[in-house]
Design a protein around this nucleic acid. Structure first.
Lengths: 203, 203
DNA sequence: CGGACCTTTCAAAATATTTTGAACGAACCG
DNA sequence: CGGTTCGTTCAAAATATTTTGAAAGGTCCG
């Protein structure tokens, strides 16, 4: 459990002004850190979470420099993090009238964001596991033929086939659930949310 | 993407015999590696996945020494990994008549295993995020009072409240889904599996 | 007791991941 | 053009995580 985020200098000024004395408010810090931890937990870099969260909480687009100051990370890190977030479709570049710098905004539709990420990331992982299991089952079935004489060996192989099949099924179930989720997400998340939680509205 | 697993010496003997010339068969390697990667992806150590998988595929309980040989890891690593897996309730110690060593078997009920892990791990993470978001909303609402005069600031705070609420809702949704899943799992996974995939049986 | 066995522990070493910041490369401006 | 201002890249440094293996602690004989 790391807590790099906690090492940050306590901000003295109260507000984020989009200009000079850049710092986060206390609730902003709390939220960005929470999101950072969550993202880290889900296998991303903590800074990806923090950067996204800062943008999500900002009323206006931010520049790389803003992020650098607000989160106290190096320019290189900002650049790389933004690039990565952009690849995940979670952040986008916007043009601001008359400004030379690039500005960025966070994806505000949480559900779209999640479905994009889940769709790409978990899916790939699961698919490759499914392939591995399928292949293993084939191998086992081949081996089984050569084991005609050896009863103990056959028993072992049979057990393994059954178990790998169980793994395979489970993976497929995962894939199915994921697909269902993504399908729902594609249409619209709100109904689902409201149904399950009974009320509230998402941004 | 690491691939430490691939560095292992190719086994020459064909079978795992529970005694001396210990090595994994090719399908065993494939499956243990796949599970290892999957586990790593889900935030565990690769070796936890590998160790569990070896046991899952074994027709009989294994000793720490067996695992050490089969997976070519140090005795310390085996001990620690087993301890961890045991804490997760994914492996258990069994007594074998007349043997002095400890023997271990892997949890074979995949669903039980998953629900146990999800229940403890993800839940904690989500709960703490929920708390952070709730707290942040309170803070924001306090701040909002002090901002009576400053319209722009009020607008910003309002936006933030809305957005953090969205995060909160999402987290709660996650928690709800998790709970639903766990409830299902507690009863029995099979029906769910069969329903979704249409057929097959799990170990 | 004393010696074989086993297991656990833990500091040090090996690895892997993340971050930094200086160097480079555009785009723009006058 | 030369001077700025940004953005990106990437090797090196900082961190974090994982693994090792030797030491220490138990337990079970004889």
């Amino acid at each position: 459990m790391t807590s790099a985020a906690r090492k940050r200098k306590k901000p003295t000024s109260k507000e984020v002004g989009r200009a000079e004395g850049l710092s986060l408010t206390e609730p902003e810090i709390a939220v960005t850190d929470a999101v950072g931890r969550l993202m880290e937990f889900w296998g991303f870099k903590r800074n990806m979470g923090r950067v996204w969260a800062v943008m999500y909480l900002s009323p206006h687009p931010l520049t790389a420099a803003d992020l650098k100051d607000l989160l106290q990370i190096s320019s290189g890190a900002v650049s790389m993090t933004l690039a990565e977030l952009t690849r995940w479709g979670v952040v986008k570049k916007v043009w601001v009238q008359g400004e030379r710098k690039d500005f960025f905004v966070g994806e505000v539709a949480l559900w779209r964001m999640i479905s994009r990420v889940l769709g790409e990331r978990e899916r790939a992982e699961i698919v490759s596991a499914v392939e591995a299991f399928e292949h293993a089952i084939e191998s086992l079935e081949l081996k089984r033929r050569d084991a005609r004489t050896d009863d103990a060996l056959r028993a072992k192989i049979d057990l393994q086939v059954r178990r790998v099949r169980a793994l395979l099924e489970l993976s497929k179930l995962g894939r199915t659930l994921l697909d269902a989720l993504l399908a729902t997400a594609k249409v619209d998340a709100e109904p689902l949310t409201r149904f399950l939680l009974g009320g509230g509205r998402s941004e």
